[in-house]
Computed example of a mutant assay.
Amino acid sequence: MSRVSVFTKDAPPPRVGIYSQATVAGGFVWCSGSLPADPETGAIIEGDIQTHTHQCIKNLAAVLLAAGSSINDVIKVNVYLLDMKDFDAMNEVYKTYWGEQKPSRTCVVVKTIPRGSDVEIECVAVVSGPAP
């Protein structure tokens, strides 16, 4: 099975650790965790958990597009929160990105998230278009 690493300038580049923004393999896109970082500067954006959730998903959408997929093709999401008190506010934003066919999801609280973020989101999607 072939594997293709995905990198796009429309999403923040890896800054902590050594990894690809995503890997395409076996008809799936395996996205690395996305922080609420600005694609141009790589800096964590200002704002609350809702602003951060939007940015994480926008970053994932850019990576998915570069991988021949889209946010509508996501089948599994993992959300990592720093504080479960943010769950409802995160969920309000999260639900705006998926309609009737919602992906499977896990949401857990973790002790720390890289770069001092309060949320990190990763996903797996089906490749729906030309893969890189």
Rank of each mutant, 00 (worst) to 15 (best):
Y19S: 06
P103K: 01
A131C: 10
C56H: 09
A43R: 10
D86Q: 13
A61Y: 05
V74A: 01
K111I: 04
Y80W: 01
I113L: 14
L65E: 14
A61W: 04
K76S: 06
G42F: 15
F28Y: 14
G116K: 06
S70W: 08
D73F: 01
W30Y: 14
V79H: 00
D83S: 03
G68Q: 11
S20E: 09
V16C: 09
P12H: 02
I57K: 05
V108Y: 00
K111W: 00
A37Y: 00
D38S: 07
G47H: 13
L81T: 11
D48K: 12
D83E: 04
L81G: 06
S34G: 02
D83L: 00
P13T: 11
D10V: 01
V63N: 08
L82K: 13
A62F: 08
A67L: 07
L64R: 02
Q101P: 02
G116Q: 11
V4P: 00
C107D: 03
D118V: 15
S20K: 02
F87D: 04
L81S: 01
T106A: 10
S34Y: 03
T96G: 04
F7P: 00
G27T: 04
R3K: 12
K85T: 09
D48S: 13
S117P: 04
V127R: 07
H54F: 12
G47S: 14
W30H: 11
E92A: 12
G33P: 02
R15H: 05
G26C: 06
G17I: 12
N91A: 07
P39K: 02
Q55F: 03
